[in-house]
Simulated scan of single mutants.
Amino acid sequence: MAGHSHWANIAAKKSVVDKKRGKLFAKLSRKIIVAARQGGGDPVMNLALRYAIDKARKASMPNDNIERAVKKGTGDLDGENYEEVIYEGYGPDGVAVMCEILTDKRNRTAAEIRKIFENHNGNLGSTNCVAYMFERKGLCIIPEEQTSEEALFEIVLEAGADDVKHEGDAFEVTCPPEAFADVTTALEEHNLTPSYSEVTQIAQNTVELDADAGRRVLKFIDDLEDNDDVQNVIANFNMPDELMEEVAEG
């Protein structure tokens, strides 16, 4: 399985963990606030807001919370002024990492993220130190029991997707960010439900990890995700499926 599939699966699992910690809704609210502030409160006209709301609904975030976040973003309710920042660097075992941040106190967040990198023998780098290793893409992962590769390819190709791959027990659909809305709409119209769908950063090359290294990297990522200001973490690692299961269970 490709590295970004691994990462998508981890992200899905971590959403459950974050929800138990009571942090997921707060992070989703920030995303909605920023999207509404930048593009207005109408998700039909503001795709970033639509994606943020869709993600919140998939996480079972109450509609009242969503509406409150939109109103904070449009200025109808008082709310914090969050700034979008991306921090980049190298984690344990040479893994390149990008952290998508929403913060109202940039200096504080920078110090906290730098400390996490240092605690895991990593290095927080300068802007674009690892960004060139990633490409921004829409990614949807469809469980293989829902469709065939041929049928899926026909559906998403017409909607603007650029590739379909059969990886493990699922199909990966990638597309340019601007085609993401059309691709997800086409999937919905054919009653296909992605286990993961998001515009994200996909690694062009991956670092192969064994189980020990995988544990180190996942602990590092866990500490990053535990920070309230971290919205998303992307890393360019890969490991065999059996090791992935071992690490996930261990």
Rank of each mutant, 00 (worst) to 15 (best):
H166S: 04
A110S: 14
Q204F: 01
L152N: 09
K58T: 09
Q204C: 08
P176G: 07
I101Q: 06
V217A: 08
N238Q: 10
P62H: 03
G22V: 03
F171M: 10
K115M: 09
F25S: 04
G40R: 13
N238R: 10
I234L: 05
S197V: 09
H6R: 03
Q204G: 10
C99H: 00
E246R: 05
N123K: 15
R114A: 08
H6W: 02
M239W: 01
H6C: 02
N81H: 07
A211V: 10
E145P: 07
K19C: 01
N9I: 11
A11P: 06
A213D: 02
D162F: 07
Q146F: 13
L124C: 00
G250S: 11
H4P: 00
T109H: 05
V130T: 03
I10M: 13
P176W: 13
H4K: 03
E178G: 03
Y51E: 15
A131Q: 04
C129N: 06
V17E: 06
D182I: 06
E112T: 13
M1D: 04
N205R: 12
K14T: 01
E145I: 12
P177Q: 02
A12G: 02
N128L: 12
L47K: 10
G122I: 06
V230S: 05
D18P: 07
K165A: 04
E67T: 04
